[in-house]
Amino acid sequence: MKPSPKDKLLFRLLLENRHRIYAYLFTLIRNRADAEDLLQDTCVTLWEKFDDFDPKTDFIAWSFRVALWKVKNFQRKQGRAKVTFNDELLDIIANRYENQIPKLGRRREVLQDCLEKLSHADREFILARYEPGASAQTAAEHSGRNIQAAYKALARIRKRLHQCVTHNLDAQPEM
């Protein structure tokens, strides 16, 4: 089974963009494991529907459309109990998110610099919190904090990172 040029193109696009699609899914579904599963689901559908995709158009926009549809479908299956946002709100968030894509991309780049600006302890702590399978609890244990102190520290570091990125972004000329 040889990959067609189109297959190769899709692989490349997915490799390049899978973290962006994931972030979009995570924003909508609010749960890391669900977002990771839905990413796989989305990729399969993207592959199946890839013949419909015009390479001259925006891959991200197209994949986000599929991803949003996957999220709505998923929530429908989950039933009322687990629904975080209704379809109407999902559309609002999705719409705003898509408008922000270029800015979000720049924020991502700047975030790495801001991580470097954190103290060593804070950087280790926040990264430990976001490791696969980790939680505030595991990060607290890892750093020897009690859990309430960990909540406070995480909130503080997140806010600092966000402000740092916003500040640095404002200082940078827009592309």
Partner: peptide
């Protein structure tokens, strides 16, 4: 959106 995006980026990092 920015905050959630930031968390997703930290997942990656």
């Amino acid at each position: 959106i920015e905050y959630t995006e930031q968390s997703a980026a930290l997942h990656k990092t």
